[in-house]
Design a protein around this nucleic acid. Structure first.
Length: 885
DNA sequence: CGACTCACG
DNA sequence: ACGTACGTGAGTCGT
């Protein structure tokens, strides 16, 4: 077998690794405060490569500095680049250390780039009969691909690579690897900051290269081109193109002081590597080698005492002041999870046990239920529900580490205590994954020492992070948000979850059998039409049938094949009856799998109820989400799906379902925060807002009839504004031309100038501060707001304007929920709040309380906050969730 | 585990 | 020249 040569583009891989893990940059620091994400990522890449490729010689090439022969030739080469962040530059020396410990050589050469070193050695490799693999994050190196040299370019992350052989280059670009140089000479390179020929981009460059073969040949035969602007540019920029070609060409004969014989692969240097990992704090790599982390990387030790029935009272007597508490439930679903153990303590002393039954012992129960002793926890809602299952009513929660952390930064929303602690620079508690393992291997340790230690570490982390996080909330002006909204809401949500919603399984089963029959029927029709049986649920097989066998026109493609999404199928509906049948099939099978079998699976047999979990610390905007199951997306729009709601019934005879929802709450919030006079006026006048928007943007005279189509379009414009509109997006949605959509938007901004002003100012605020806020100072950071990539930046801009609106609407209903629950308790109503669906609250109540709710709920909801436009609430009542009127 | 599709606000 | 509306969760397929 041929000898193998591995050449790694050190700089580009380190950059890739750094930016790939940039969102978790703070999680990767060692004890000395050194950032380690890039080092870690580099090692991941190395392991991945060495898993498949066994080199005889290997080299990591680095850039030797900014000045190279290219900068001497062209001043602006790689000019205009942002300064490399300090968090990255500090890692380079350690990457070199790592490379050495891994048994690879590294090399750099003054005045040359890593590319040139690689190009030169790859050529030597080719000549010496090696099979060469080049690993890089830089697509430019694909010009080096040859029959014996493959170029692996990182695709996503650091381990997912795309392999470029000459065939692959041909397939992707239609040119040979060396012609990539000609292509780049013509199109230029924005990241290396050389221009290429004016107005020539990738498409044009490839076309020219295919036609002429090379830049030189192009200019030798330039007269063959027809007169055009492009030709003028080419002639004008001839010198530039030729200079760019030199810049783009990777050298194959750089004056290296080393050769292949000097870079033999040594294999891993185990001892050096262990010492290095310990210094870096790479616990997972150490664990793979069965080595303990170094002493200073290990969490500082914590002392604990095991509870027994006998020592319980005495030990509790020694506790003093506020308590940190943690009940360990290994399954995420705390309604059903077993209890693995618990810890309680005051910061000095930690008491632990595996036996959750001990919590029921009087002294402990009294402490947890005491309104005088403050408790600090992680995920208060889980703790309230868990303890409720043990008959304990947890009181006086002061600090919830998870909740506080979420308010400080919605981006770090892990549910793992160790992970959250790390985000706040606290290193003395490992993650559950590190202690319990992951996947099938995950288990609570049998070893008491290991398990209790982890519990004590968790409680200690809660205790020790409290002051720091409160201080940060204070700095962000978020104390009222935490104290008056989120923490009280936790208790309301716990109550709703515990109450659960009664679901009639028989109703679902009956619907299910009907759907099964229809499904079989449609299935048969589809197979007839297709002429064969196939898996209709497989988009791949379906795409094959529709677009290859039946030869329907391809409307849209996805990354992996043909798109068969609804909007595509709707366009094909008149081409073949199979399309309508597939739409039918999809609709029904969705109902069947998600809503019939899905819901049946989660009805608790003990009470015939479904107990969802509301996630309070997940969304980027402040909304809740609902899982296990999701009760916020039960069908309503289509009549067939809506029938599912018949199964949602009151839990007692003689009770009814009652529901109130905010009408157009987001647009009202928009009117409030933009201060737009026209929008506010329309709401104050109690207008049909979409109709009045139509009147304004289509310039209709007062009193003129507004036809349905106009209202529909205006409604889409209103939605679009809230979401951060583009003319293209609007055009797609309401089936008009892009220029018409553009005109609608312009008209909107003319009619509602306050909205336009708000959008501009909010984006500017985000650029200046890096975050946006809702009316309650809920915060969302937008790191991409100044990104170079158009896509990422645009996305951040849209979220900048959408988040204050969606988030403020979420704030409003949260406040209403807290007030509503407290009204129910104050008035001692039997009514129960069951569900929140973003702008809607669903209750169940005895029939005689319905008149009370009809008055009370709208009153509480529309006075939840004072906006400068009125809030409007509509209520409905019925015997099931389906029958609401 | 990612991609796709589709249910909701 | 780009590539497209905001926020979610679940089921299914296929690597």
């Amino acid at each position: 077998m041929a000898k193998q040569l591995l050449l790694i583009d050190g700089n580009s891989i380190v950059f890739r690794a750094f930016f790939a893990m940039h969102n978790q940059i703070d999680k990767f620091t060692n004890k000395d405060g050194l950032h380690t994400a890039a080092i870690y990522g580099f090692k991941l890449m190395l392991d991945h490569v060495l898993g498949n490729f066994h080199p005889d010689a290997a080299l990591v090439a680095f850039d030797a500095g900014k000045v190279t022969f290219r900068t001497k030739m062209y001043d602006d080469y790689k000019g205009g680049r942002n300064k490399t962040p300090e968090e990255l530059t500090e890692q380079f020396p350690y990457v070199r250390e790592l490379v050495k410990a891994c048994g690879l050589h590294s090399y750099e050469l003054k005045n040359y780039e890593a590319d040139d070193i690689i190009g030169t050695l790859a050529k030597q490799g080719d000549e010496a009969g090696y099979e060469t693999l080049i690993v890089t994050g830089d697509r430019d190196l694909t010009q080096l691909a040859s029959d014996h040299t493959t170029v692996a370019v990182t695709h996503k992350g650091v381990t997912d690579t795309e392999h470029y052989t000459p065939e692959h280059v041909e397939e992707k670009l239609g040119i040979t690897p060396t012609q990539i140089i000609d292509m780049k000479a013509l199109m230029g390179d924005t990241s290396d900051n050389y221009p290429g020929v004016t107005k020539v981009g990738e498409k044009t460059a490839i076309k020219l290269v295919k036609q002429f073969g090379s830049v030189e040949n192009l200019y030798d035969n330039i007269n063959d081109l027809k007169k055009s602007k492009m030709k003028e540019h080419l002639i004008e920029d001839e010198d530039i193109a030729k200079q760019c070609k030199t810049l783009a060409t990777i050298l194959r004969d750089a004056p290296l002081e080393i050769g292949l014989k000097d870079i033999q692969y040594q294999g891993e240097q185990t001892e050096e590597l262990i010492a290095f990992y310990q210094q870096m704090g790479f616990k997972s790599f150490l664990a793979k080698m069965n080595v303990e982390p170094s002493e200073e990387e290990q969490a500082k030790p914590v002392e604990f005492t095991e509870f027994t029935r006998d020592n319980l009272a005495d030990e509790l007597g020694n506790l003093d002041g506020e308590l940190s508490f943690f009940l360990e439930m290994p399954d995420p679903n705390y309604h059903t999870s077993p209890f693995a153990g618990f810890v309680i303590g005051d910061g000095q002393k930690w008491l632990v046990s595996r036996d959750a039954e001990l919590l029921k012992e009087a002294p402990l129960k009294e402490l947890l239920e005491s309104t005088r002793v403050a408790k600090n926890v992680f995920n208060a809602k889980a703790q309230i529900v868990g303890l409720h299952r043990l008959g304990i009513n947890l009181q006086n929660i002061d600090f919830d580490l998870l909740l506080a952390s979420y308010l400080l930064n919605t981006n770090d929303n892990s549910n793992d205590l160790g992970q959250v602690a790390l985000e706040h620079d606290y290193h003395d508690v490992p993650t559950d994954e590190e202690v319990y393992g992951k996947g099938a291997k995950r288990a609570i340790p049998d070893d008491d020492q290991v398990f209790f230690n982890h519990l004590a570490q968790k409680a200690r982390a809660i205790n020790e992070l409290k002051d720091k996080l409160f201080k940060e909330l204070e700095e962000n002006k978020q104390i009222p948000l935490y104290t008056d909204i989120e923490l009280p809401l936790t208790r309301v949500l716990a109550k709703m979850e515990i109450t659960g919603v009664h679901v009639n399984a028989q109703t679902l089963k009956n619907m299910g059998s009907k759907l099964t029959e229809r499904l079989a029927d449609i299935e048969k029709q589809i197979y007839d039409e297709a002429g064969e049986e196939f898996n209709i649920n497989s988009t791949k097989q379906l795409g094959h049938i529709l677009f290859e066998k039946l030869k329907l026109p391809v409307i849209k493609k996805t990354k992996t094949g043909y798109s068969t999404a609804v909007d595509v199928l709707e366009k094909l509906a008149d081409q073949s009856p199979i399309v309508e049948q597939i739409l039918q099939y999809r609709q029904i099978s969705k109902l069947q799998s998600t809503y019939i079998t899905g819901l049946l699976k989660v009805i608790h047999s003990s009470d015939q109820k479904i107990h969802t979990r509301y996630l309070q610390t997940l969304t980027q905007t402040g909304r809740l989400s609902s899982v296990d199951p999701n009760l916020q997306n039960i069908p309503v729009r289509l009549p067939e799906g809506r029938l599912i709601r018949k199964a949602f019934v009151p839990s007692h005879e003689g009770w009814q379902i009652f529901s109130s929802d905010y009408s157009q709450v987001e647009l009202r919030v928009l009117a409030h925060i933009t201060g737009d006079k026209n929008l506010q006026e329309d709401f104050k006048n109690g207008e049909d807002i979409h109709a009045s928007t139509a009147r304004r943007i289509f310039h209709l005279p007062a009193g003129a009839e507004i036809d349905r189509n106009m209202r529909r379009r205006a409604k889409a414009v209103n939605f679009g504004i809230v979401y951060g509109i583009s003319d293209y997006g609007l055009a797609q949605r309401i089936h008009v031309t892009r220029s018409q959509a553009h005109e609608f938007i312009q008209n909107y901004f003319k009619e509602f100038p306050g909205v336009k002003k708000y959008i501009d100012e909010t984006i500017q605020f985000a650029r200046d501060h890096g975050y946006v806020e809702t009316i309650t100072h809920r915060r969302r950071y937008l790191p991409d707001i100044n990104a170079k990539s158009f896509n990422r930046r645009s996305f951040a801009e849209r979220t900048a304007m959408n988040t204050p609106i969606q988030g403020s609407a979420a704030d409003i209903i949260k406040i209403a929920m807290i007030r509503m629950q407290s009204e129910i308790e104050k008035r001692q109503l039997k009514a129960k709040m069951l569900l929140q669906i973003h702008d809607e609250l669903v209750f169940e109540a005895p029939a005689d309380e319905i008149p009370v709710l009809k008055k009370l709920v709208p009153q509480v909801m529309d006075s939840a906050v004072k906006l400068n436009v009125p809030l409007k609430v509509e209520s409905k009542v019925g015997d099931t969730w389906y029958d609401l009127k």
